[in-house]
Design a protein around this nucleic acid. Structure first.
Lengths: 242, 242
DNA sequence: TCTGTCCAATTGTCTGACATTAATCGTTTG
DNA sequence: CAAACGATTAATGTCAGACAATTGGACAGA
């Protein structure tokens, strides 16, 4: 960790980088305690506030956690899926919204990845996954549902589908792709007719997963992708027109 | 942004959260300038160092960038793929290493996602993608290559394959899955025989992409997945034995 | 042995100051 | 009159020192 610093500028990022690399390289294992802020300040030859800024950067990435008190300090955090999910989703969402990624591209990426989960989901789905999917389908048919709630339920349905694949790494990677689409989907106003269509496709997907027919799952997902794209295209056309 | 703060504790995270939500919600658009640190401190009723810590957290997530000088300050960052990539990779890598994700699960996730790119890659690959893949294959056959360099080239090959799909969102999502595997792959000692095998499969993949035959790409990827898994299983068995 | 109190270590926050950077404005000069 | 150059200024980056808050452990007493 004791790397040289370019003493001239931007000390905090350099310190953060040094510690981060030590963690990623495995020199600091989970739950290991870092030296106190004062010690680090002395080691790196900077002041305590500078060290603190560096530590805050790491805390923002959930790489470390801090604890006050006598035996307190900064500890290397054991990154859990629960902590990694929101980060992944926030980053993906911003990436889409700030880079003017067109609806079509985002949609294609999402459904391409989701189709990849289909075979595993069909093979490994348990009763809980099937129940979760069915519950969302029911919710989506409820009258008086706002567009936003409909979208949220849509996301929940697809997450259940992905989780059915029984691979946590896959679930993690897909979370970004699926959730990041929600803001884009929220721009769409769903008519009763389009909701019906989507719910019907969701049912086909759920049934195919239940029947363990991967090809049918993929086919229904492809149809849903095309339908979603067409809805998005309509919105874009109207936006340009009006 | 002017949300209430629980004045009692952990002010910096609260401020960071308030600003982050304003950015994610779109209240602060790209390149918008935040108030100066002094102004923010006054607005939130805290001291400047506290505000600074909050800003550093956001900077660590690349949500803002800071600039010194007269017209300087903190600006909402337009998150680019270049900035998002390393974050995605770091998080994915740590998630795998810290959660004792077994080789098999990680491998399955990676190749499942990669197969999903196959149809698009076969359809859209350009001469540059084909050249990149071919270049890595050549490098992998070079004598005297270390295991680490071989793995790095392997990653580069697969990234070229993913990029061939021509969907930046897909490339971004896959980066985590592919790169995060590298530390796990580095545990494997590649024999001349196994390198030969892998290079042959890479060639099959490249040829199938070149010939625009998605099914052949998927088949070769599946074989590569199985072969990689068997290599990993060997390492695990030896480790348990010795 | 158990319990309550005190103490020490550590992070969280504040205050004030100075250094550094970079744009702008005014002045000076060709 | 225009261009170049220096002073000003506003902002972040860094530092020093201090105090508050919190937590665990040690120590003394019942």
């Amino acid at each position: 960790m004791r790397t040289k610093l370019d003493q001239t500028k931007d000390l905090a990022p350099q310190i953060a980088k040094a510690i981060r690399e030590a963690i990623v390289a495995g020199d600091l294992i989970s739950d290991a305690r870092l030296p106190s802020e004062s010690d680090l300040a002395e080691q790196f030859g900077v002041s305590r506030p500078t060290v603190r800024e560096a530590l805050k950067r790491l805390a923002a990435q959930s790489l470390i956690r801090t604890q006050r008190g006598a035996t307190g300090g900064a500890f290397v955090n054991r990154l859990t899926y629960e902590e990694a999910y929101p980060q992944q989703i926030t980053t993906s969402t911003l990436l889409l919204s700030m880079n003017a990624v067109d609806f079509e591209t985002a949609c294609e990426a999402r459904y391409t990845l989701e189709r990849a989960c289909a075979p595993l989901a069909a093979k490994r789905r348990g009763p809980d996954h099937l129940a979760a999917m069915q519950a969302e389908i029911t919710r989506q048919g409820a009258p008086g549902l706002t567009d936003e709630a409909f979208c949220a339920s849509d996301v929940a349905f697809h997450r259940a589908l992905v989780d059915a694949a029984g691979n946590p790494v896959l679930s993690y990677q897909l979370a970004g792709a699926v959730e990041a689409m929600q803001p884009l989907m929220n721009m769409i106003t769903f008519t009763a007719r389009s909701r019906e269509e989507i719910i019907a496709l969701h049912s086909r997907i759920a049934d195919a997963v239940s029947a363990q027919e991967p090809a049918a799952v993929e086919a229904a997902l492809s149809e849903l992708e095309n339908y979603t794209k067409s809805l998005g295209a309509q919105v874009m056309a109207e936006r340009r027109g009006g």
